[in-house]
Amino acid sequence: MEFIGTLKGTLLAGAIVVASATTALAEFPERNIEVIHPWGPGNAMAMSQVVAKAMGEELGTDMPVISLPGAAGTKAQTTAMGKPADGYTIFDGYVAPLVLQPILGNADWNFKDFKPLSAAVANAFAIAGQVDEARWSNFEEMMAYCKENRGELRYSSGSRNNLPHMVIAKALQSYDCVAQNVPYTQDGNVFKDLSSKVLDFAFVNVGNFRSNPDKVKILLVLSELESSKKAFHGAPTIGELGVDLGLSNLGPMGWTWWIVNPDTPDDVTETLRGAMERAMARQDVIDAVEAIGFVPLSWDHTMYEEIVGGVDAQLNSMGNALAWEEKELKKLQ
């Protein structure tokens, strides 16, 4: 008898579970929504947690952010898009896995293969040199020095073949400057080694620069946005250079556009889009994004093809800069 009682209880509990599963189909969202983030723990992840928290509040659910770094974000994107197309998995679609890696032949997708929710944030980079630099006083002089001393300078773009690397390589190619990139896994260490004069120049992000503005000298802001110029204390931008790098708008910047699996039902996608747009319009979210050194973006899904397509075209047309750098470095060996 005791056993049958237990069995009944277990079955009842099972019935509740299954019942709740069926109601889940009726109203979205019925449970937590996961946001897959392509980088390791750090500022960018904390940023995504801010957006996810606000969006979760709009939807009345929790949205945990899961960090899944690896292979320039392609591991996370493959994993996220391999999950069921039910709207319970969102991908934090950074430019590296979404656009850049397919261009480099490391991923077999196209940005058009996914359903966009809304643009989230962008972050600008700059090229910085050492303070008290005696060899040059601005970016163009550094390029001239570099051209004269091929292979002499050491720089870092953080990871190899990432967006800052591509943009820097394009800039170097435009000036026929060959320098050795030194890959780092943590941006903070790039900044540290630049400020302690181990590196000649490097990419820096707004966050690291704001913490120690007097430790490095900003030579060139890799963005045309006025807000980015301001964030880097009014340093010259790529728009003010003598050469045209063919980059404008979001082209030279890091950014993320949240996306879902293309097979996600339309009503679910619309619910998510509405919630994300409301979240991105919230003042507390804008404040937090700006506090962390990022730029909040307000484009909705209708602008996806135009904006991301523009970046795709720009990066595509400059894709040979990395190959050029590799070839020139090999010549020097």
């Binding site: 509740i16 579970v17 299954v18 709740s20 599963a21 889940a24 189909l25 019925e30 449970r31 937590n32 996961e34 929790d62 945990p64 039910d86 319970y88």
Partner: peptide
Amino acid sequence: FEAFLNVVLPLGIWNVFIP
């Protein structure tokens, strides 16, 4: 894990979960 730490445990093909 689910209620306090917001972990989404595997749901399986039948989407079984406890709200």
